[in-house]
């Protein structure tokens, strides 16, 4: 099992750092899956993390100038590690001006992802800083827990309003309630609502547009096509989970979408060129 990657381009390094910082805001621990083509950051929806799950996919080619890996075996050419994204983010943030950054799997006092950066200096020798981020190697028998979640059989899919606007709305709503109802229809309308004994607040967004999922969508001619465009699908979620998602995000996605499975789950998708981040927030009764 070997892994070594090198980033030279400053823009790539910056972008990679943003992605990891975004993830670090969503979860304390997650699983990093390395394959010859991709890096995946995965959080599986366990009760311990509030049922929230996450799937972030990066294509290594878009970030790394060099990427070498050798998985557990030729058939299972993957490496699966449990990491603390905050540590990775902190390590990367301090080396933004580096000439080159290497990320490698090392055996130190424990298995580590070592981030080694060559920093520019005035002297003839470069300054090298290394951060050893402890990781835990996940044995193969547990890998099945970290597979890509299947696209839920959603009732409504809709583009999100500007995330900043959404964040401002939710930041205020959070002071009033712990739960938020997200509802949307196929007519490009979305509402964010809170409802307590004292107050009911709802914010309406319109003309958001509905992504054309076509045949790819999991429901072949399923409910959404035969659905009345004005009927809302809604899910009540923990407002903090949604806020966390909006606060931490640094990816500046080119596309932000939301799929709602009525009373079941809110599935948020951010797409930015080569990065996709999916976040699932389960419904609360």
């Amino acid at each position: 099992m070997k892994f070594r990657g090198k980033i030279i381009d400053v823009a790539c390094l910056n972008h990679f750092t943003r992605v990891i910082t975004t993830i670090s805001k969503l979860t304390k621990m997650c699983v990093l899956r390395l394959t010859p083509q991709n890096l995946f950051f995965v959080l599986s929806g366990k009760v311990a993390n509030g049922g929230v799950s996450m799937w972030c996919e990066l294509s290594q080619e878009n970030f790394f100038d060099e990427f070498q890996m050798e998985g557990v075996s030729p058939e299972d050419n993957e490496i699966c590690l449990e990491v603390t994204p905050e540590n990775l983010s902190r390590a990367l943030k301090t080396v933004q001006n580096a000439k080159a950054v290497k990320v490698k799997l090392t055996k130190k006092h424990c298995p580590c992802l070592t981030i080694a950066a060559e920093l520019p200096t005035l002297s003839s020798v470069s300054r090298v800083v290394t951060h050893d981020v402890p990781v835990e190697v996940i044995p193969r028998r547990l890998w099945h827990e970290f597979k890509e979640p299947s696209m839920p059989d959603f009732d409504v899919s809709i583009y999100l309003p500007p995330l900043k606007t959404m964040k401002n709305v939710i930041d205020r709503m959070k002071n009033l309630s712990n739960f938020l109802v997200v509802e949307a229809n196929l007519n490009g309308e979305m509402n964010l609502k809170i409802d307590t004994d004292l107050v009911s607040v709802s914010t309406h967004f319109k003309d958001l547009g509905n992504p054309p999922w076509g045949d790819e969508a999991s429901q072949q001619g399923g409910p959404s096509q035969s659905r009345d465009p004005d009927t809302m699908a809604q899910t009540r979620v923990d407002i903090r989970k949604l806020q966390q998602f909006l606060v931490g995000q640094q990816v500046n996605p080119s596309k932000a979408m939301c799929n709602i499975v009525h009373e079941r789950v809110v599935h948020l998708i951010l797409l930015h060129e080569d990065v996709s981040l999916q976040y699932f927030i389960p419904a609360v009764a």
Partner: peptide, 30 residues
């Protein structure tokens, strides 16, 4: 010795960590 930053060989970072398919708690202890 100072980390030879540019020219290191990946093999030197070889990790003999076992994640064999063999079930059992010992599998995770390298």
């Amino acid at each position: 010795p100072p980390d030879d930053f540019m020219n290191d060989d990946m093999d030197s970072y070889l990790i003999a960590m076992d994640t064999s398919v063999m079930p059992g708690p010992s599998a995770s202890r390298p």
